[in-house]
């Protein structure tokens, strides 16, 4: 068993009176692929935002990669996001006026310095070597999601977070994206936490946890 990368103790998140995440205890060992399932409003996106340093917990402890997230300043959180995690969104969220390669380079720029050759390589690795100079609007949904993956992994994060990365994709593209993620994980050895409500997608992971109304209700291991 390898070291733990995510460890939460009594983690809660309230939005006013609404409790999005009830006290949650969770441990994720390094290198695991964890799927998080639940219907909308079950608190899975909240969990993901907390793990990605986009949001702060209301209560409880949260350690990601040995870093106490409660104690980080706003700029500390920004540094954590750029050096430690990569995030793939359902809506892709690419900057519309930048080309594919520039979108990847932007992540490099915020991290350290842009390196176009490396960004090209990353896009070639996700199979977009022929669409470097296209803007997001000229790419299909699956291609956009692959740009998003290239952007997420460009800074060699320890933790890759996916927020319904295949929610907007057809079956074929979904398969392609999942295959890609599996390959990349084999090479880069990052941990994946992926939120989904598609059991088929969840089955790609090593373990699946089910959230309902902010409570962890069930967890099961996938047989490989």
């Amino acid at each position: 068993m390898s070291t733990t990368i995510i460890e939460t103790g009594g983690l809660t998140r309230n939005y006013g009176d609404i409790c999005a995440l009830k006290p949650l205890d969770l441990k994720v060992p390094e290198g695991e692929w964890l799927s998080v399932m639940g219907h909308s409003g079950s608190g899975k996106s909240t969990l993901l935002n907390l793990l990605g340093g986009l949001d702060r917990p209301s209560n409880g402890s949260l350690r990601v990669g040995g870093e106490d997230m409660q104690g980080l300043t706003e700029d500390g959180l920004a540094r954590f996001r750029r050096e430690f995690v990569g995030i793939i969104f359902q809506q892709h969220h690419l900057i519309p006026y930048l080309t594919a390669v520039e979108n990847v380079m932007m992540a490099q720029y915020f991290h350290s310095v842009p390196d176009e050759a490396e960004a090209r390589l990353a896009l070639e690795r996700v199979g977009l070597g022929h669409r470097l100079k296209n803007r997001p609007s000229e790419l299909s949904g699956g291609e956009q999601q692959r740009v998003c993956i290239a952007r997420a992994i460009i800074n060699s994060p320890k933790l890759l977070l996916g927020d319904e990365p295949t929610g907007n994709l057809d079956h074929k593209s979904t398969l392609m994206v999942m295959e890609l993620l599996k390959e990349l994980r084999a090479e880069e050895r990052f941990t994946i936490v992926m939120v989904t409500h598609n059991p088929e997608v969840a089955a790609w992971g090593d373990r699946t946890i089910y959230l309902d109304d902010g409570i962890l209700v069930r967890e099961e291991r996938t047989r490989s």
Partner: peptide
């Protein structure tokens, strides 16, 4: 940009 890691 913030999500990708831009600080203030």
């Amino acid at each position: 940009m913030k999500a990708v890691g831009a600080d203030r």
